[in-house]
């Protein structure tokens, strides 16, 4: 079941979105996230929804595949929604036991849920259509100016791309360890919180050991292939803006203006 998490993974397909320059996609994701926080008006969210649907269609990634990836974070979403739902004061709607749901709370909870879901969908869309290497290159070049502030941009970008590549491997490993410990009679499903968290030790220790072993192996393999940081490194796929990238920036600018405009003029 852990294998089903699609968060941060690359989905191979031939689409306009896949071919875009990673810098455009990074900027696009950023703009999309900003657009979600500009206003809480329904109309703004309508614009964002249309934009998101268009992008998903354009990416040729099956919607079902994306949703599957959301399952993993459903818990966090539920928690946030619950907090907003129960802990916002205002006009009382329903109340039972110690919980009270207010009109404001309900509204806030819905907005938070939508915002969070869009946020995740938006960034998942970026990683689904961009290989980790492209993403690294995009970050490295797009954020290159940060090097002026002595930030190790190349290293951070490389770290991110390796992390993304290792997620599925470690997921599989976790699955295997859980099964192996279950075969030794371990029980992860019953008992109170303390018992359950104690039951995690037989999973976490082997997982950490394995992660460190893999990290060590990978570091050696990278060194063996002459890796010595970003210095003097050339690019197999150098980033050069093409016509479509420029068009994409214009589309992004239009989208952002549209959201701002809607925020100003729309009554709801």
């Amino acid at each position: 079941m852990l294998r089903e998490i699609t968060l941060g993974q690359y989905y191979q397909a031939e689409s306009r979105l896949h071919r875009l320059d990673p810098r455009v996609k990074l900027a696009g994701t950023l703009i999309f996230i900003i657009s979600l926080f500009i206003s809480q008006k329904v109309a703004c969210y309508a614009v964002a929804t249309v934009f998101l649907i268009c992008m998903i269609r354009l990416s040729k990634v099956p919607f079902g595949y994306m949703i599957k990836g959301m399952k993993a974070i459903a818990f966090i979403m539920l928690l946030t929604v619950a907090f907003n739902l129960f802990l916002t004061s205002g006009e009382k709607l329903v109340s039972f036991w110690v919980f009270t749901i207010t009109k404001e709370g309900l509204k806030l909870a819905i907005f938070t849920a939508v915002r969070l879901a869009y946020l995740i969908l938006g960034s998942t869309l970026m990683t689904l259509t961009t290989t980790p290497n492209d993403l690294t290159d995009g970050m490295e070049k797009g954020l290159g100016f940060l090097r002026l502030f002595r930030l190790p941009v190349h290293e951070i970008a490389m770290m991110m791309s390796i992390a993304l590549r290792f997620i599925p491997i470690l997921m599989e490993e976790t699955d295997k360890i859980i099964k192996a410990q279950q075969a030794r009679g371990a029980d992860f499903e019953s008992g109170g919180i303390i018992k359950r968290s104690k039951a995690l030790v037989p999973i976490l220790v082997p997982l950490f050991v394995s992660a460190f072993r893999r990290a060590n192996d990978l570091a050696m393999a990278m060194e063996a292939r002459c890796y010595h940081g970003g210095e003097g490194r050339t690019k197999m796929k150098p980033l050069i803006y093409k016509a479509w990238d420029i068009r994409a920036y214009i589309i992004l600018a239009c989208y952002l203006s549209l959201v701002i405009l809607t925020a100003v003029i729309s009554p709801i």
Partner: peptide, 20 residues
């Protein structure tokens, strides 16, 4: 089921990776 897991011992591939 738990008793079954005692009666049928399953040793996975590279079982040493589960030592903790």
């Amino acid at each position: 089921m738990k008793a079954l897991r005692g009666k049928v011992g399953l040793v996975f591939q590279y079982p040493e990776h589960q030592l903790f």
